[in-house]
Simulated scan of single mutants.
Amino acid sequence: MSQQVQGVIARAKDAPVELVPITIPDPGPHDVVVRVQACGVCHTDVTYRDGGINDEFPFLLGHEAAGIVETVGSEVGHVAVGDFVVLNWRAVCGECRACKRGRPWYCFDTFNASKSMTLADGTALTPALGIGAFAEKTLVHELQCTKVDPQADPAVAGLLGCGVMAGLGAAVNTGGVSLGDTVAVIGCGGVGDAAVMGARLAGASTIIAVDRDPKKLEWAKDLGATHTIDASSVDVVQAVQDLTGGFGADVVVEAVGRPETYEQAFYARDLAGTVVLVGVPTPDMRLDMPLVDFFSRGGALKSAWYGDCLPERDFPRYVDLHLQGRLPLDKFVTERIGLGDVEQAFAAVHEGTVLRSVVVL
């Protein structure tokens, strides 16, 4: 039978979010109902509310979530009732051209639930990133559920569902940071600081955090940065070169998503270095740089989408490392809040006063 729970929706562009009853249908053959235990507040949810993704209102917000599988469809074999899972928005299909070429992290046909969750009056909801987890329960495809060690704190494990994985993967998967590398991270919010943490995990010898906010630079130091640069007071490119023997960094992660910071990243790398863009630009942004500089510097220019992760490979690995005390994922949880506090948490995201607010149910 369908069931009614409380969920946080965005009804219209720029309107405050609302906590309302929503209806969870019976799962389809490959769908599961997950009882949400925790869900991080990500900037992407703010963008949904503000109409920056698309106009398919109303949205059921929330996507960085962990919880317990409660009900499964008739053909589900990937998870079972009672499993502790982190939700993901890259449930790879295994059949598209990216998957068949051995690059499933680029999957072009990821799975979502076969049915829509609705408002009480039957209006279909669009779940954020196909998840919609600012709710007591949510409906997803079975492959959107990744089993991890149930000893993990749901508020911590759930953050791998988006921002933390994006930053970690930008450094480890996309950037290929390795032992002894020099790394610079421009922009030290949640995603950038996760890249700092990933660079430390990979064995980088020098990790340079760049931001204009002293508080964010302190966060970065706590997560493994060996040096910090206040971008408001010095030339970033020169400062990175000064800290890397005059050469520039082997890998530069740009976690802001603006033309001026991307240009800094480009010139702050070594001649054969790698730039990874993980910050999300807006459609109107343009880059004007000499083409000859792209030709003459070599190296690689990459973009990281979800940190080029494979949830089934990466989520359990990072949860295990956290439980072993080798990956301080818990430091990203700035505050724990209730479902009714999401709008205030969005304000904190805009103000940059938190790494992550986490809704705990």
Rank of each mutant, 00 (worst) to 15 (best):
P150M: 09
L139C: 03
G180Q: 13
L223F: 12
G340F: 02
I9D: 01
G73S: 11
A184I: 01
V72W: 06
A195T: 03
V8Q: 08
L321I: 09
A113K: 02
D153P: 09
E70N: 05
A204I: 07
L87N: 07
K302L: 11
L355R: 13
D308G: 05
A98H: 13
V342P: 06
F294Y: 14
I53K: 11
I68M: 12
N112Q: 14
Q6I: 00
L87S: 07
G94H: 06
L329P: 05
V34I: 11
M197K: 11
N54C: 12
K216I: 05
A239Y: 02
F111C: 05
D121P: 09
P21Y: 10
V20R: 01
R101W: 04
P154T: 05
P58K: 07
T47K: 15
V280I: 15
P21I: 10
R90K: 13
L310M: 09
T226M: 07
Q6Y: 02
D250K: 03
V210L: 11
R49V: 08
F266K: 03
S178H: 15
S296M: 13
L201E: 14
V342S: 01
D193E: 14
G62Q: 10
V275P: 07
P328N: 11
A239Q: 08
A249W: 06
D284A: 15
D83V: 01
D314Q: 08
G94K: 04
V76T: 04
G132Q: 02
V140A: 05
C42V: 00
P328W: 05
F108R: 15
G167R: 08
V72R: 00
A268S: 14
R326A: 15
P104N: 04
L321K: 14
P281L: 12
G7C: 02
E142C: 02
R49W: 02
